[in-house]
Amino acid sequence: MSKHATPSGGNVINAVDLHKVYQLKGREVVALRGVSLHVPQGEIYGVVGPSGAGKSTLLRCINLLERPDRGEIWVDGRNLTALPPPQLRAARRGIGMIHQHFALLSSRTVAGNVAFPLEIAGVPRAERRRRVAELLELVGLADKAAAYPAQLSGGQKQRVGIARALAPRPTVLLSDEATSALDPATTASILDLLRDLNRELGLTILLITHEMDVVKRICDAVAIMDRGSVVETGRTVDLLRTPGSLLARSLFAPPPVSGDGVVTLTWVDQAEEPLISQLTRLFDVDVSILGGALEEVAGHAVGRLTVRITGERSAEALTYLTDRNVLVEEVP
């Protein structure tokens, strides 16, 4: 037992110091090198990073589809890594999972697929039927109950996947690149559905993705992974206000130019303030706008502007911006 053996309050998922090494054709591949993750109740938590960063291994460790070589996984106050197989199976019923390629049973109808986890849990037939109808209504596929997965579009298949994952009333939903096989419009509708479920059911969602769009749309908090380690973690909005943030760098295009007096300005939810015109008026500086974007991130309006400020009082101008809660970063 390690000293981390008690889960910290309010977190539904606590992964503590996970290590995992694979043997691949006699070669050792380190997938996780001491990864810890703490997901609070009711959050949508995104793990992002390039492929090969260890995101997928991390997610599969959470419900122990992969067993970490070292470390502990606590879900809903239970140490999964210490559970014997029958209790682990029971605990897994409290953890729903959706998959990149949907992983639906082609031999079962939509209703049969949604009923499957309930059959595994030993729910009586009448109760199953009621729950399935309720779930298909929830994901908007009530009219497709008798269809087979092969007859559905990708978005519809993922809705079935979501209904199936929710059937045993899990407290946590794991999403393994759930929108990566979908087109942008369908991705948006699936993300909206996940956001609604998160709000209405208080469902905690841990998702992995390589699409920054997913983070932007729905993630309350993010962990950025690279080569088996978490290199940045925090609430999405806070990270964007943090100097040198990797998240901001991935979300926005890099500054188009660099040089003397070039700075990037990042602000959250201040779109209404006439900051630039105030600068020119108050400090008698010239401001050239070199590039910029305004993005909606996790429900907040985030602006990022690259500007060159020239004039004798430009230092004062930057201080003024910093005081007004704008993140000022020099572009070297």
């Binding site: 589809l65 897994r92 019923r93 999972m97 992983a103 082609s106 499957f116 986890p117 595994i120 849990a121």
Partner: peptide, 25 residues
């Protein structure tokens, strides 16, 4: 492999995975 994973993630026993996933599929 992913449907087997999915069944395992739902807490299915191995015999159930054979009987309700592998053979029907």
């Amino acid at each position: 492999r992913d449907v087997v994973d999915a069944a395992q993630a739902m807490g299915a026993r191995r015999i159930v995975i054979v009987g309700k996933v592998l053979l029907p599929e």
